[in-house]
Design a protein around this nucleic acid. Structure first.
Lengths: 223, 223
DNA sequence: GTCTATAGCAGGATAGAC
DNA sequence: GTCTATCCTGCTATAGAC
């Protein structure tokens, strides 16, 4: 007779629920009991499949986070290529990035939110997964953008200045994710699709022209 | 005979060490044992003076975080006033903000770092202290900046767009603090005074002119 | 006010039946 | 592979001696 929950499916369910909970409350904030209950699995299953809670956390990054990071990376490439201009200019690259990272595309709004939450936690308080995040996802992305920006000869900026610019853009992007409680409290607006769309075009506009140096009659967010 | 550790001093020591630890590891990551040991106080003293761990956390915000937030706020005002121009322009306001928040002034580098760490944690995962942070520190600051920016008639931006701009600047500022592990790993540079000075001028420049609209070639609104 | 001792509980991990 | 029962550690909070 077949089992109701075959092994590999149980593993998958645990990974799924673990990721949701780790993103919400961080490693320390989550208990193994919580995870297994959410996954409708037995308390012992985490240790059976993953050896320890710590290793489950790492596996969430290896099996779930990393593939999505690569998806985003590909979406970015596709967006840049889709913009047409060759070589792509700064506006095209920045918009491609913001779209890939913030807009509903390959993954759902919730999934993307979790993705950034998990990453933000690692960036602020590194653990086992930090190296993996840096080496496999962030550094390649930064190198790619440095090449784009360098090729477009970004003002007379040095590589070091370009790195600061990239961090600034990343900072805005992540901030609009992790500070959601602040932002919706202060603006009084719901964090919905419409708001996100305004955030994306704001970030593009702000990154390109800042507060003062706007293109005449700039695009910015409409309503 | 006088006591070696009078009551009020013990309270103060506990607050001091608690703040350091909460900033480093968050509420859940810190144990009462850790705090009392660091403060050279008894395990029972946290409950004696503060009632509970949760309330100790809240008191750290009331007694330590808030006064410093007000100091930063005053430093900001002073910087704006010191810039001379009346009414102050956008560049003056942005620079005054970045200086107040990032540069070594009223408080030490470590102290400022802790301050932002504590705040970032609340912004991402609100607890009891969230309302206090918003009402007493962030909202007043945002309102003040909205007035400055509005008075300087920032392009033809609406209040809603101005709010997004303010969040963007805040996002960069906080990101350069909380993502230190990432930034020093990727740049390979130490997070010292020299680096921070470059970060401040980068943030000012980036906020004002973005990637493209630099001073020399893109005057649109009045400086 | 300070300290020791401990109650009382939650958590991660494991042994062993099925 | 799955599940129950349990061990053991480490936590917050408190009682009560000094």
């Amino acid at each position: 007779m077949e089992n109701l929950h075959p092994a590999d499916e149980t593993q998958e369910r645990i990974l799924t629920e673990a990721e949701i909970l780790f993103a919400q409350k961080g490693f320390r904030g989550v208990t193994v009991r919580e995870v297994t209950e959410a996954a409708h699995a037995n308390l012992a299953s985490v240790n059976y499949y993953f050896g320890s809670k710590q290793n489950l956390y790492l596996e969430v990054f290896k099996k779930r986070w990393l593939p999505r990071a690569r998806q985003l990376n590909q979406a970015f490439d596709k967006n840049v290529a889709g913009a047409g201009s060759d070589p792509p200019g700064i506006p095209e690259v920045v918009e491609a990035l913001a779209r890939a990272v913030l807009e509903e595309g390959v993954m759902s709004e919730d999934e993307r939110f979790r993705h950034h939450q998990l990453m933000s936690r690692e960036l602020a308080e590194p653990s086992d997964a930090f190296d993996l995040v840096i080496k496999e996802a962030i550094r390649p992305m930064i190198e790619k953008m440095t090449r784009y920006f360098g090729r477009a000869s970004l003002g007379r900026r040095t590589d070091r200045e370009i790195a600061l610019c990239i961090f600034s853009v990343m900072g805005m992007v992540l901030y609009f994710n992790f500070a959601r409680p602040l932002i919706s409290t202060v603006t009084g607006e719901p964090y919905d699709k419409g708001f996100m769309a305004r955030v994306v075009s704001h970030i593009v506009d702000f990154s390109l022209y800042g507060l003062l140096g706007r293109k005449e009659d700039a695009p910015c967010s409409a309503p």
